[in-house]
Design a protein around this nucleic acid. Structure first.
Lengths: 178, 178
DNA sequence: GGTTGCATGTAAAACGTTACATGATTTT
DNA sequence: AAAATCATGTAACGTTTTACATGCAACC
């Protein structure tokens, strides 16, 4: 019974406390989204199959006339989560369209590069702003906070790199103009 | 005619010089792979559809009895590439299973965290080694080199972060043991 | 009465990897 | 003679996003 990392996102959150699929999605969007995203189209079917595999159990928990299914980890689910945590991480992937545009910028004679770098820097700074907003509401402790700090420092580093690279580009442009 | 960023990887490389699908894959694996991967299963079908769209033309160019199709950009292909380069980058995604394991490390009482951090650091250092090997064979100029430098500095920063975080973890462990 | 938020789910499409199948040439 | 490299391609599978469909409840 091989589970995808996305399944462990769900198991990990249910280890904190019982939750509905909707709640899981809300927390994902404020936390793991920056290094592991998940959509409703994954979460609801995955909850069902985890339930069939006996790793979680769902219970109807309607709030008034509004339906709601709350899931919790089973003992087997907790074991599966721990086993995964002890194993070596395997997946590491990045898709960065900005870097790709920078990589091929010679096709515009380099003209497109400054704008691309600015857009990349803006993107990273926007993420920093979002993460800082989350940080302001988070207790400064624990692993979720450690990873949040990683996100902030990481995107700050990236934004700074974009600025350095932009400045270096200007310099070479000035030098060839002189 | 919306093209995926993967299509632009192909157009971008063909803007450098005419190439076969096999060659494109070889160059991808030494360069863009670290921020935009592509498999044969994408490259060959994409070459065909770019050809049907009139953005590239293929010509049989067998080497002895070994078949080989070399593609080159058309004027329309060059225009499409430039238009894409001038537009804002949109896709930015990361999937980092190590961060996910760190994020949920409290489920092992934090016990799994040091090993996860070490594995993450090892992974980043291995990428740095690969990129440095490429750097040793690259002329230190141009946008491909700029992006290569980004890769090296980026993964070095990441490896260093993992070491810092590991050290911080040890410190808190020592403090609570004392 | 309208908007926003809570809540669940499916279907289709897009995207991507892996394994398979085939065969020539070059290097060891 | 074997192994590595060059070379093309498809099929099956798995993953992920997006759009759609539905409806209640709370707030303004």
């Amino acid at each position: 019974m091989e589970l995808s990392p996305t399944a462990y996102v769900i198991l990990g959150m249910l280890d904190w406390r019982p939750m509905s699929g909707y709640e899981i999605k809300g927390i994902v969007d404020k936390s793991t989204r920056f290094f592991w995203a998940a959509s409703y189209g994954q979460i609801y079917p995955e909850l069902r199959s985890l339930s069939e595999a006996g790793l979680v159990t769902g219970k109807a928990n309607p709030q008034g006339g509004r339906k709601r299914n709350v899931y919790r980890l089973t003992a087997a689910g907790r074991r599966a989560l721990r086993a995964w945590l002890e194993a070596e991480p395997e997946v590491y992937e990045t898709r960065d369209e900005g870097l790709l545009k920078l990589f091929f910028a010679s096709a515009t004679g380099g003209e497109s590069a400054p704008k691309t770098l600015e857009a990349m820097g803006r993107g990273h700074r926007r993420i920093v702003d979002q993460l800082r907003a989350t940080e302001a509401q988070s207790p400064p402790e624990g692993f979720a906070y450690l990873v949040l700090r990683y996100g902030i420092e990481f995107h700050e580093w990236n934004a700074a790199w974009c600025e350095r690279a932009g400045a270096a580009l200007e310099e070479t442009a000035d030098r060839s103009a002189a």
